[in-house]
Amino acid sequence: MDVFMKGLSKAKEGVVAAAEKTKQGVAEAAGKTKEGVLYVGSKTKEGVVHGVATVAEKTKEQVTNVGGAVVTGVTAVAQKTVEGAGSIAAATGFVKKDQLGKNEEGAPQEGILEDMPVDPDNEAYEMPSEEGYQDYEPEA
């Protein structure tokens, strides 16, 4: 019985440690998101679009440190934060509304985080759909 109880105690310690790591990862992701939003706020009209992409990228980098179902929630929060940063930029006159959601080359930025393969159960990952990809044929 002692062996059984000791095993359960060790398992509990492992769960607590994993929860603490997840909590730490979420806190880091939130900190990076805040950094990115402050970065966007300090940019001029020309830099705002690039700044919004930076927020998304920093958040995406930190999301990889967070495991399990938390990833889905962090990704949703990050996307809403990026959308909010863009709205703030438009409201303050840093950028025109028609410039939001495009990178410096004018290509749409939507789907940055949505296409990231995420499995809350950590069982399997699927690649994003290939609808947006084109076949590449090298020139002879």
Rank of each mutant, 00 (worst) to 15 (best):
residue 84 G to D: 13
residue 10 K to A: 08
residue 61 E to W: 02
residue 48 V to P: 09
residue 121 D to W: 03
residue 55 V to Y: 02
residue 31 G to C: 09
residue 18 A to W: 07
residue 90 A to N: 12
residue 85 A to D: 09
residue 52 V to P: 01
residue 68 G to E: 02
residue 11 A to E: 01
residue 98 D to R: 15
residue 88 I to Y: 11
residue 121 D to V: 09
residue 13 E to V: 09
residue 127 M to T: 08
residue 59 T to C: 15
residue 75 T to Y: 14
residue 35 E to N: 12
residue 56 A to S: 08
residue 33 T to K: 07
residue 68 G to T: 08
residue 31 G to N: 14
residue 123 E to A: 03
residue 132 G to W: 14
residue 29 A to W: 12
residue 107 A to Y: 15
residue 128 P to V: 04
residue 32 K to H: 04
residue 51 G to T: 11
residue 27 A to C: 03
residue 121 D to K: 12
residue 126 E to A: 06
residue 130 E to H: 12
residue 18 A to H: 03
residue 82 V to C: 11
residue 33 T to F: 02
residue 19 A to S: 01
residue 103 N to L: 06
residue 139 E to Q: 11
residue 32 K to A: 07
residue 105 E to T: 12
residue 59 T to M: 08
residue 43 K to A: 10
residue 63 V to M: 02
residue 126 E to L: 07
residue 131 E to Y: 13
residue 6 K to E: 03
residue 99 Q to Y: 10
residue 130 E to R: 02
residue 80 K to D: 01
residue 27 A to S: 15
residue 30 A to G: 03
residue 57 E to M: 08
residue 103 N to M: 08
residue 133 Y to L: 13
residue 64 T to P: 06
residue 74 V to N: 04
residue 35 E to L: 15
residue 34 K to A: 07
residue 20 E to F: 15
residue 125 Y to W: 07
residue 119 D to G: 13
residue 93 G to E: 07
residue 107 A to R: 13
residue 103 N to T: 09
residue 140 A to F: 11
residue 61 E to T: 08
residue 74 V to D: 02
residue 47 G to K: 07
residue 43 K to Q: 10
residue 133 Y to W: 06
residue 79 Q to T: 11
residue 36 G to K: 10
residue 8 L to K: 00
residue 19 A to K: 05
residue 95 V to T: 15
residue 123 E to P: 01
residue 17 A to K: 12
residue 115 D to F: 05
residue 118 V to S: 06
residue 14 G to R: 14
residue 93 G to S: 03
residue 41 G to Y: 06
residue 130 E to F: 04
residue 9 S to D: 07
residue 2 D to S: 03
residue 59 T to R: 02
residue 136 Y to S: 11
residue 108 P to S: 08
residue 106 G to W: 13
residue 81 T to P: 01
residue 131 E to A: 02
residue 26 V to C: 04
residue 25 G to A: 14
residue 109 Q to K: 07
residue 64 T to F: 02
residue 62 Q to G: 01
residue 110 E to D: 06
residue 71 V to G: 03
residue 50 H to E: 05
residue 32 K to D: 01
residue 43 K to M: 04
residue 100 L to V: 12
residue 137 E to W: 04
residue 89 A to R: 08
residue 51 G to N: 07
residue 11 A to Y: 14
residue 127 M to G: 08
residue 38 L to V: 09
residue 109 Q to R: 02
residue 122 N to C: 11
residue 71 V to T: 00
residue 38 L to I: 05
residue 116 M to I: 08
residue 112 I to N: 11
residue 31 G to F: 14
residue 108 P to E: 15
residue 6 K to A: 06
residue 5 M to G: 02
residue 25 G to Y: 14
residue 19 A to N: 01
residue 136 Y to C: 09
residue 24 Q to H: 11
residue 139 E to W: 10
residue 131 E to N: 12
residue 129 S to P: 03
residue 137 E to F: 04
residue 132 G to T: 10
residue 23 K to Q: 02
residue 97 K to Y: 15
residue 113 L to W: 03
residue 6 K to S: 04
residue 86 G to V: 02
residue 50 H to R: 14
residue 13 E to M: 00
residue 89 A to T: 11
residue 49 V to W: 11
residue 105 E to V: 09
residue 3 V to K: 03
residue 115 D to S: 11
residue 21 K to C: 09
residue 62 Q to M: 09
residue 28 E to K: 07
residue 64 T to I: 06
residue 88 I to K: 02
residue 4 F to M: 07
residue 89 A to I: 14
residue 103 N to A: 12
residue 37 V to Q: 00
residue 8 L to A: 02
residue 72 T to G: 12
residue 59 T to L: 05
residue 64 T to K: 10
residue 48 V to Y: 03
residue 12 K to D: 00
residue 56 A to M: 08
residue 113 L to R: 12
residue 24 Q to R: 12
residue 63 V to Y: 11
residue 113 L to I: 12
residue 90 A to L: 15
residue 84 G to K: 08
residue 69 A to M: 10
residue 47 G to S: 14
residue 128 P to W: 02
residue 23 K to L: 08
residue 55 V to G: 02
residue 5 M to W: 02
residue 45 K to P: 00
residue 78 A to Y: 13
residue 120 P to L: 03
residue 18 A to K: 04
residue 39 Y to L: 03
residue 110 E to F: 08
residue 98 D to G: 11
residue 73 G to N: 12
residue 31 G to I: 10
residue 11 A to M: 15
residue 127 M to S: 09
residue 127 M to H: 09
residue 48 V to Q: 01
residue 22 T to W: 05
residue 78 A to T: 06
residue 38 L to G: 07
residue 23 K to A: 09
residue 42 S to P: 01
residue 59 T to I: 13
residue 69 A to Q: 11
residue 96 K to N: 13
residue 37 V to W: 08
residue 48 V to E: 01
residue 5 M to T: 01
residue 39 Y to M: 02
residue 113 L to A: 09
residue 58 K to A: 05
residue 77 V to K: 05
residue 66 V to S: 01
residue 95 V to C: 13
residue 114 E to W: 10
residue 59 T to D: 01
residue 52 V to H: 01
residue 32 K to R: 06
residue 33 T to Y: 04
residue 34 K to M: 14
residue 116 M to P: 13
residue 21 K to Q: 08
residue 99 Q to I: 13
residue 30 A to H: 00
residue 122 N to S: 10
residue 18 A to R: 00
residue 65 N to F: 12
residue 37 V to A: 12
residue 115 D to W: 13
residue 124 A to H: 10
residue 92 T to Y: 04
residue 51 G to Q: 03
residue 3 V to H: 15
residue 124 A to Y: 09
residue 130 E to M: 06
residue 67 G to V: 08
residue 45 K to S: 06
residue 138 P to K: 08
residue 65 N to I: 07
residue 114 E to S: 10
residue 114 E to I: 14
residue 11 A to P: 00
residue 25 G to Q: 13
residue 38 L to M: 15
residue 13 E to C: 08
residue 84 G to F: 05
residue 101 G to E: 00
residue 132 G to V: 02
residue 8 L to Y: 07
residue 6 K to L: 03
residue 121 D to C: 08
residue 92 T to W: 15
residue 99 Q to C: 11
residue 17 A to I: 11
residue 117 P to I: 10
residue 79 Q to D: 05
residue 97 K to L: 00
residue 28 E to F: 06
residue 97 K to Q: 03
residue 140 A to Y: 07
residue 66 V to N: 03
residue 134 Q to A: 10
residue 29 A to G: 04
residue 55 V to T: 03
residue 23 K to F: 15
residue 26 V to G: 01
residue 35 E to P: 03
residue 124 A to F: 06
residue 28 E to Q: 04
residue 80 K to L: 11
residue 84 G to Y: 06
residue 134 Q to S: 12
residue 98 D to C: 10
residue 127 M to A: 13
residue 10 K to F: 00
residue 117 P to G: 06
residue 140 A to R: 12
residue 105 E to C: 11
residue 76 A to V: 10
residue 103 N to R: 14
residue 28 E to P: 01
residue 32 K to T: 04
residue 112 I to K: 10
residue 128 P to K: 06
residue 32 K to N: 03
residue 80 K to P: 03
residue 119 D to P: 09
residue 122 N to P: 07
residue 8 L to I: 01
residue 70 V to G: 01
residue 29 A to I: 13
residue 84 G to S: 13
residue 59 T to N: 02
residue 31 G to P: 01
residue 55 V to W: 11
